[in-house]
Amino acid sequence: MYVIAKREFFSLFKSIKSIIVIAILFLTSFYSAKYSGNLLSEVELSSFEQENIYSAGLMLLILLFGMLFVTGLSHDTINRETHERTIRFLVTRTSKSSIVAGKFFGILLFWIVCLIASFLLISVFSQRISPLILGQTMSLITYQIALTVLLSTIVSRPAFTMFLGVIVGIAFPIISFWLVFGSNSWFGWIKFITPFYYLSKDDLTYLFILPLAAALIGIATQLFKRREC
């Protein structure tokens, strides 16, 4: 698992797409932190909002485009290997669950590094790091990575997950917001399996996202175990 995670982590830094995403993260963090101070004098905000206004840009970016970024970079993390049959070199050496876990943790580590670097950049302006916002962002990205790994396991063709990734990346925040803030009695229950519901509260409720992500990875592992390579 460790070897696969290491390879996944380093290979993510080598692609052009990753560099673009890192640049977007850093630029958004930098400019939102730099100019968010202006809002403090013009808009009336609660003390909690005032404290975390510097991280708002980054949080909003991950809320709206996080899924798109993750699927854009890692939609083919499993199915590319299956499609090109390089997976055979992995499954003959280690267990299928180690492969899924390794892929997941490799991608997660990439995002943890990127997000911590972004938060550190923000802290230059705010002089502090909000543990709550950091925790919420990390939990959200963990869920999005788990969902991406699951998609890549279910769909066997990389070209299709690329297309599906864009659709899911755009639809996921829209549907999630609609479910959380809407009052649809038929589909309302779905909000409990999306991370946005748990992020709508400013407390440790966001930790519920982690078991959801674990469940998604569990499903991906079981599906992958049954699949032939």
């Binding site: 070897v3 696969i4 049959r85 055979r88 070199f89 003959t92």
Partner: peptide, 24 residues
């Protein structure tokens, strides 16, 4: 195992492949 149909990671050299697989 040498599978019947072998494709490799295109951007890795032979040494990189062997190091990765031996680690694994």
């Amino acid at each position: 195992v040498m599978p019947d149909y072998s494709t490799f990671y295109e951007n890795l050299s032979a040494v990189d492949h062997l190091r990765f697989f031996s680690d694994l």
